[in-house]
Amino acid sequence: MLTQLHKVEQSLNQVILGKPQQIRLALCCLLAEGHLLLEDLPGMGKTTLAHALANSLGLSYRRVQFTSDLLPGDLVGLNIYDARSQQFRFQAGPVFSQVLLADEINRASPKTQSALLEAMEEKQVSVDGETRALPTPFFVIATQNPLFHAGTSALPESQLDRFMFRLSLGFPDHQAEHQLLQRDSSRSRLELLSEQLNTEQLRALQQQVPQVKASDALIDYLLALVNSSRHRSDMLPLSPRASKAVLRAAKAFAFINGHDYVSAADVQQVFPYVAEHRLDPSSAAQDSRLSQMLLQQTPCPI
């Protein structure tokens, strides 16, 4: 199954050129059952990545463009009166999909943002007192424009915390962009992506991630790392939820790399993407200054 996952990774690399690391981290986030926040300028391929992920994994995919007038009901769904059957019928919103691309999440009102984040955390929604479970796997890729753009309302720290990873695709290098321009529309290539892993297989992979071994010594190192962020004034302290997220992400990372144990190197690899937006919510996605500082200041004896 892992080989199939690597095939998925390969085909994703065919669509998004020159970004193997980001693709691996995105897969890692999916495996760790976390949600992904992509922060980039428009036109960097965020939507393409989300769409490609959904296609290659055979997952149902919806996209919601967040605007300032988007209401929670538009996202979650409504009870609509059906005149024929003279009953209320639930019209499911776009949130009832396996991969949800929440485009430009920081353009929506805080109310709508929090409705989505609640769904992300609970994996269920309540409409008119009735609780409905969301499909599994449920994977949200939210994109966000950099905050200095007009007409945005920033996600509060508590809600940023719900995203396991924050990534930025960034500009492609010269060669990749050259290749991109030469070939026909990448959207059409998207159509060519075949389903290489079905939902059950993905579920099975996801369930293997927690079984990756994390030794006591490694957890001590992880705790030392997390602890170094506490009692400081130049950053927000990392919560236990954050340390759980780091460990889970590192496990998924080790798993994709074909290991059945987490190494300190795995932790160091994922740490900036898991920790930076929690340490400083206003930082730019490409910036990993604080987490790199913590990594350098924490000795790793193992």
Binding site: A264, Q268, C300
Partner: peptide
């Protein structure tokens, strides 16, 4: 380097 894992 102190922060470097041994295996790395």
């Amino acid at each position: 380097t102190p922060s470097q894992p041994l295996s790395v």
